[in-house]
Write a protein that binds this DNA or RNA. Structure first.
Length: 475
RNA sequence: GGGUCUGUGGGGUAGCUUGGUCCAUCCUUCGGGGUUCGGGACUCCGAGACGCCAGUUCAAAUCUGGCCAGACCCA
């Protein structure tokens, strides 16, 4: 039986092939870092969009849409931001044959598109808070190698931008975003750590950045998204001001929250196995696939039963597909397993007569359901699947971390490491050199494992002001 | 940013060193027929490729250059 490459040993090979066999994208589009979404992959992405939309709107954000092109003059207003993105933006310099007076940037992110308009929208404290988001495509000219979903040049980007009256309100919005993300991650069965990125690695223009990191085997990590507190760094150059109750003119404090289709890649990367993708029911294009076992001698009873069951499940809101193709049953099992369908239902002729089915979970559990209310039993089996997937993920997650006490231990790390760190950039860089990766930052909230109190800094040995930080190798 | 290597049907490959054997190999895929159908079926018939553009040559998948795309290494 053909299996995928070993996930632990050859992660990238495994990942590329898992995406390939699942048919989520077509990588043959002839522009680097830009893939075509297939109907199957697009459905997963659209369901993910739904999770993000429901989550953010529940926290009081409204959808907007700003243009794709940004004039150079606006793009360059915030110094750090420009420096951070200058090397990776696409420029539009011509309209037809005419050279544009002011070149246009294809948005790499939308701060500089939105904020000139925010400065018009916001006049008074009554206009605050302003919480808006958009889901649009953004463009970044990645110079490194690209990977489907993980590192791409056209990014399907979710970005929330908010304006708050005070520093404290902005910090509160960041915490609220973290709660929203927790909900999305739970729906995907993905554990994560929220790390406050070190100064040298924060978003260009941010006061601080909180990154949502997922360990994906070895010391490798994947940044799932980010939450940034900008303070007044953008509102000053873009003159986003309001009059407070006493008539004093103040600059707003801004935040952003960014996610992308990388979450589809993360789901593949974290849950996938030797047979391919494993989707949680929340974004599985098909939650259930029914395979009728055709028999020449016993007639089409199994197929009829499969179609009838599918109708009942659809009425209950289940995304279900009957695979009535000519392939043999075994071939269908392999196909839908590689594509990540949570639950397979097999109906044979004798089962059709008895009113029972065989249910096989993508995690391997096989059992007979019925006779009885099959739709109820299948809904239960789907809920059980999500629970089992999440439990398995959290068990894996805990094994992804270990403490390192000396710099030399970092070299061939097989997990993400917790290190005691004094917080200085100099020691941070020593840690990064030792692990051949990055200091991910200091976790917000509880640590993924409990290492006790931080001791002396792993690099300089000082004991004052040390804290636990995570170090790993971002993909 | 600097360097090394690669590009053959829809996917994966053989052929390239030494130009002619190639109207290009094998597996898979796709269309049609038949027998099948509880873990990747068998069989018969058919379809489909030398990344693009130039150059060298009697002759180019094969050699040279440029471009495009991809992989890897270094900063």
């Amino acid at each position: 039986m053909a299996e995928l490459p070993d996930k632990a040993e050859h992660f990238i090979d495994w990942y590329l092939e898992a995406v390939e066999v699942a048919g989520l994208t077509d990588k043959r589009y002839p522009v680097k870092g830009m893939n075509v979404w297939t109907p199957y992959g697009f459905q997963a992405r659209r369901l993910l969009d739904g999770l993000m939309i429901r989550g953010i709107e529940a926290s009081g954000s409204q959808a907007v849409e700003f243009p794709t092109l940004i004039p150079q003059t606006e793009f360059q207003k915030e110094k750090e931001h420009v420096k951070g993105f200058d090397a990776e933006v696409y420029w539009v310099t011509r309209g037809g044959a005419t050279e544009l007076d002011i070149p246009l940037v294809l948005r790499p992110t939308s701060e500089t598109a939105m904020y000139p308009i925010f400065s018009i929208w916001i006049r008074s404290h009554k206009d605050l808070p302003l919480n808006v988001y958009q889901i649009v495509n953004t463009f970044r000219y990645e110079t490194k190698m690209t990977r489907p979903f993980l590192r791409i040049r056209e990014i399907h980007f979710f970005e929330e931008h908010t304006c708050q009256a005070t520093d404290e309100a902005a910090a509160a919005r960041c915490r609220s975003n973290l709660v929203t993300f927790q909900g999305i991650a739970d729906a995907l069965g993905l554990p994560f750590v929220a790390n406050r990125r070190p100064e040298w690695d924060k978003f260009p223009g941010a006061y601080y950045s909180i990154a949502l990191d997922l360990p994906v085997g070895g010391a490798r990590t994947l940044q799932l998204g980010t939450i940034h507190h900008y303070r007044e760094n953008f509102s000053r150059p873009y003159e986003i001001r309001y009059e407070d109750l006493s008539g004093e003119v103040k600059y707003v404090h801004q935040t952003t929250f960014g996610l992308s289709e990388r979450l589809v890649g993360a789901t593949v990367a974290f849950h996938g196995d030797r047979r391919g993708v494993v989707f949680p029911t929340s974004i599985a294009p098909f939650q259930v696939v029914i395979v009728p076992i055709i028999s020449q001698t016993l007639g089409p009873v199994a197929l009829d039963a499969a179609r009838a069951l599918a109708e009942r499940l659809r009425a209950r809101g289940v995304r279900v597909r009957v695979d009535d193709s000519e392939d043999r049953p075994g071939a269908k099992y392999y196909l839908w397993e590689s594509r990540g369908v949570p639950l397979r239902i097999e109906i044979g002729p004798r089962e059709a007569a008895a009113g029972t089915v065989t249910a096989v979970s993508r995690l391997g559990e096989k059992k007979s359901l019925g006779p009885g209310p099959l739709d109820e039993l299948i809904l239960q089996a789907l809920a059980d699947f999500d629970k089992a997937l999440s439990a398995q993920a959290h068990a894996t997650f805990r094994k992804c971390f270990s403490v390192a006490y000396r710099l030399e231990e970092l070299k061939n790390s097989t997990t993400v490491r917790l290190v005691s760190w004094c917080g200085t950039e100099e020691c941070g860089h020593q840690i990064e050199q030792a692990i051949e990766g990055a200091v991910l930052g200091v976790p917000e909230g509880p640590l993924p494992i409990d290492p006790g109190a931080p001791a002396e800094c792993i690099a300089c040995g000082k004991t004052q002001d040390t804290r636990w930080a995570l170090a790993g190798r971002p993909l």
